[in-house]
Amino acid sequence: MRLEPIEAPGVARRVLPPALAIVATFVVAAVLAMIAGGDPLRVFGEIVKGAVGSKFALLETLNRATPLIFTGLAVAVAFRAKLWNIGAEAQLYAGAVVTVVLGTGALTLPAPVLLPLIGVAAALAGALVLLVPAILKTRFGVDEVVTTLLFNFIFLLFVSYLLEGPLKDPMGMGWPKSPRLIDEARLPRIVEGLRLHWGFALALIAAVAVWVIQTRTTLGFEMRAVGQNAEAARFAGMPVMSVILKTALLSGGLAALAGFSEVSGLKGSLTLDLSPGYGYTGIVVAMLALLHPLGVVVAALFVAAIFVGADSMSRAVGVPTYLADIMLATALLLMVLAILLTKFRVRRD
């Protein structure tokens, strides 16, 4: 068996494999649901109902998608330039820590001034967190997969220390939890009375902004060129190292905005369970989106819907929520395979 590249794939060749991947994902999930004792159709029905079946469910899905859009964009931007940022989790927490430091009364300014200030500061913190591995990569050739991945654990332990020490809420009954943000530092809700906050709108704006940067600016042109072929980019006179560093700043900043948005828009304070792995799920989101910034929005909504839907399905049917993780993992693996099949055909000789 071997793979033969297809020079100019037709429409069927480009659409069919990804469609089959999604179908196959649901088949796998159906089998597992049956093994777990549920009726597959009912399981899927409950997931859909739980994700988009009511106004509450829909808003919950949008809220859940918000951090995933940010981390998905962070990963997509970096991967596009072949900067393998596995550290969105640490960058997210860096943004969250800065939000808490500046938003719990250290600065007292009116909200229209304070919120942008905190947002920018949070993004800068995330950018700096990724800048260090990026410099190590460009200067000394240190593999950023290792450094960014391992830095996640270091930073999470650092946050744990902060929550037990300097940032611990004195009124928190001893729980490792930060004080609550002041009202001026909270992202307001988009519509009064509904649980959806402005972080979601910010995420959509970020996605469009990234898309514009990638397609319309010289920096975007350079980032794509460096990612596709750094040797040719260097030969053409592009400043490859500086492009990688700028990419790191953008990627880290986007991931940090996820932390800012979660603390300021949703939770109001920082705990160690702020992110159930949004940084890692961002990789799944970005891959499902084929690294396209607008695709990230769609993929994040899809992933959020499955998670939110699975929660409520689990309550209704009794099939464990792990089904959601399995569905995502299956979808990702099959999607990677499907993308391969859009570009190559399998030969059996």
Binding site: R224, A225, Q228, N229, E231, A232, A233, F235
Partner: peptide
């Protein structure tokens, strides 16, 4: 192929 052009551009 690898220095003069970017294949997927």
């Amino acid at each position: 192929h690898h220095t003069g052009t970017i294949a997927d551009f």
